[in-house]
């Protein structure tokens, strides 16, 4: 009985403090007024403590024919778009990328011209390269 109460208390705590269960999701959308094929030069704005995600995004965009530079500073003048991203990591036996959001923005106004998001929990986790490929491919698939 004591064990049951302990277990129930533990699961109750989990219920109170956590927000959900397991899911896989991959979405993308492009603003109706945006033309991705006209964006030939992009600047991937690196998050300061990011080791490699910015490189993966840059490489993937290069494979789409875009000339890409990276850095932590403000975007250089003359680029057609600035790429920002949010990568969320989780630990389950090993670290894995839980969620990746990539935004392609107008360099002058910061307006998000196109957005992609992928979310994969532990059991169906993807490698960082696969996450980046999925997000960027979905953005271009949704473009005009």
């Amino acid at each position: 009985m004591k064990r049951l109460l302990k277990l129930a208390a533990l699961l109750g705590l989990v219920t109170v403090l956590t927000t959900g269960c397991a899911v896989n999701r991959a979405t993308a959308n492009v603003d109706p007024s945006a033309n991705l094929s006209s964006l030939k030069t992009m600047y991937v704005k690196r998050i300061a403590d990011d080791d490699n995600t910015y490189n993966l995004i840059a490489d993937k965009l290069r494979s789409k024919g875009v000339t890409v530079s990276t850095g932590t500073e403000a975007a250089p003048s003359g680029v057609d778009a600035v790429v920002t991203y949010i990568d969320k990591w989780m630990w389950d036996m090993t670290m894995y990328m839980l969620e990746l959001t990539v935004n392609i923005r107008d360099p002058k106004t910061d307006f998000p011209l196109a957005t992609g998001n992928s979310f994969h929990t532990s059991l169906t986790r993807l490698s960082p390269t696969e996450m980046v490929n999925e997000v960027v491919d979905n953005i271009y698939k949704d473009a005009k």
Partner: peptide, 14 residues
Amino acid sequence: SVRLTSLSKPTFGG
């Protein structure tokens, strides 16, 4: 046109 481009949700906490 209103597009949701980022929704950052916590997974744990008070």
